[in-house]
């Protein structure tokens, strides 16, 4: 099963490091990362594999949300299906 993580907020040092740290601890494998900075707004999209996740989806979702608050960015963690169903026939 795959999920999409999106991060939006002001750029600072350590955003990717913090998030990937959380993911590694939860045994989540990163498949793809795309990141840009436009007018100092940091935006990142990450496609991850959650097949071997070692906690509940909602639990990881809470941890990521909290990580986002600490970093001052908005992190969303959503199952990939929502994007597939909306954008692919």
């Amino acid at each position: 099963m795959k999920a999409v993580i999106t991060v939006i907020g002001s750029d600072r040092i350590g955003i990717i490091a913090s998030i990937t740290g959380v993911l590694a601890k939860a045994n989540v494998n990163i498949l793809d990362i795309s990141q840009t900075i436009m007018q100092s707004i940091f935006s990142m999209i990450m496609l991850v594999d959650i097949s071997n996740i070692n906690c509940e989806f909602t639990e990881l979702s809470d941890i990521l949300k909290q990580t986002g608050e600490e970093l001052g960015v908005e992190i969303r963690f959503q199952r990939e299906d929502i994007f597939t169903s909306m954008h692919r026939i």
Partner: peptide
């Protein structure tokens, strides 16, 4: 993978 616009369209 989806393109950025698709992902952000859904989120917006």
């Amino acid at each position: 993978m989806f393109n950025r616009n698709e992902i952000f369209e859904t989120i917006n």
